[in-house]
Design a protein around this nucleic acid. Structure first.
Lengths: 173, 173, 173, 173
DNA sequence: TATGAATGAGCGTTCATTCAT
DNA sequence: AATGAATGAACGCTCATTCAT
């Protein structure tokens, strides 16, 4: 990957996140990346190719999102870290998270179930902890996480501290 | 409101929901509405005006979304109806809900807190029911609802029945 | 001539003078005249018709432009009044003069020789006054008048007083 | 400046001069210049930009208009060449002169005082020649020139020879 | 690999004009 | 006489894309 190709990717990340896919022109990207417009097409064939590359790139970055949780063996800590997760997002990954969420809504991306690994970890944890319906409980936590995440990505979450504390008491953490 | 203006609105609803704002052309709308393209601009000034009108129109339709719940006096029923809400959406309103959600993500609409009235109703309900932290509990239900809603709008919710049942047992309904 | 037709004419005068023929839209005229756009076409058939009517209307108004000079019998006074003419324009006629000049340049109007009557009067005057080449002298005065007029219509004439005085001394007035 | 950009400029000169700014479409220009329409906007940003570039371009061409006169040291010759000037226009510059005059009237260009250098030269000449009011005399010549020029640009000047001869006798040339 | 001039389809928009009322 | 909803062609302009260098 050459330096300019990377600059194109970085600029696309920024501009797609800000203005969406259709709201961003290849000319705009080239300007922002200080690169000739033609180069975008040499590297990505067309705009759609750039979009796909962007999403793949973002997914790669995000692939290790839950990794610290998945490595965890203690069931209680798995639950706690899961609940803390949307409140404590790795700053470096936030742009990629925003991009993926935005593009999933704008384009109708066939959304792979990104949450699956974490959900499985939660199911295991709740099974270990003796929950009566661990699968459903995992889903409940999933909803809490994704609901919180949505607010975070929109910069709308005002009561982060008190909310997280309450989440924890709910699960006796 | 003339018949053709209404047809433009209906077509916009459909096409914006399907392909997003930037992904929909005014020509496409005029074709779909069987109307001259110029008429769109006579009625809405420009595409942005049409977008705003659409969002307002959708918001009007959606304003009565929670109304049956808000009228409810029995605290238990308020909670139950709230939890049932995303599983039991009024079919007529679903398109408007999809549109609003999609456009909120694509364009960066400063999103008014649509959930506020329902949240307040839930706070009251949980207060009545003697919950220790009714405000936070309302937020938890909000997350459950919005998380579920997001999956519904993306046609991703596979375990609706079992999930709703579990929600209810959680709140002893 | 109905009141509204007259309002259309007045608005056209103003807007054509300000922004030219092509720079003025029939919609703009209808707004300015507080009249429905359709009415313009009922009265003038099409925009070109309105343009022609405007020019005719202006020409009618301007037909009496030189009239006070033409009535004059004293040769000296004819010359003096002629030279004073662009410095002392009838305010009511100024807009029509601006319009005609502007449209003559914008559209390539086959320009009737508006100046002819005054030129003839000047020829007579200079003949009476014993000028050696009265026709050419009339042409010189014509140039002085039209040159001055052009500056007046563009609001560019800064040295009006001193210039008129000099003109007069030249012709011993 | 690429060849195509120059072709756009040349075509604009021709078409603007013929039909005015608003009367000329960018599509028409592109056809005439045998160039894609988009190229106009790549080079000039928008139609207004093209208009401004045209006027500047014309002004550049016209900047050397009076240059042969300004170089002249003999006062008599300055006056003679000045009077001859509108009768003896460099054919290559005529289109630019037409364009500038036309656009100054159609658009309301704040018209820089193009005549200033020549006027100053005339003032000097008349001073040298011992005229009592050289400034005003220069203004008189200016009016003669601009009046004649206007007729020339409109192809209205029928008595060129006799008129020029008379001008010369007036100034004893 | 990288540029930048150039393209042409299509976009949002304006405009003169028509027509039912 | 007068309105105002509606049209469709054309306009200025943007955009993804190509290609010679």
């Amino acid at each position: 990957m050459t330096a300019r190709k990377e600059r194109i990717l970085k600029s696309s990340l920024e501009l797609f996140t800000e203005n969406g896919f259709h709201g961003t022109s290849t000319y705009g990207i080239s300007q922002h990346a200080e690169v000739s417009e033609g180069l975008i097409f040499r590297h990505f064939r067309n705009k759609e190719g750039l979009g796909k590359a962007m999403v793949e790139y973002a997914n790669e970055q995000l692939s290790m999102l839950y990794e610290p949780i998945l490595r965890e063996v203690d069931a209680v800590i798995v639950v706690r870290k899961s609940l803390e997760f949307p409140f404590n997002l790795p700053q470096a990954l936030l742009p990629y998270l925003k991009l993926r969420t935005k593009l999933e809504w704008e384009l109708n991306l066939e959304n792979t179930d990104h949450f699956a690994p974490l959900r499985n970890a939660l199911i295991n944890a709740f099974t270990t902890l003796g929950y009566y319906q661990p699968v459903q409980e995992a889903r409940v936590v999933e909803m809490l996480i994704e609901g919180t995440l949505a607010e975070v990505l929109k910069d709308k979450l005002a009561d982060a501290d008190v909310l997280l504390a309450y989440f924890k008491t709910k699960y006796a953490l």
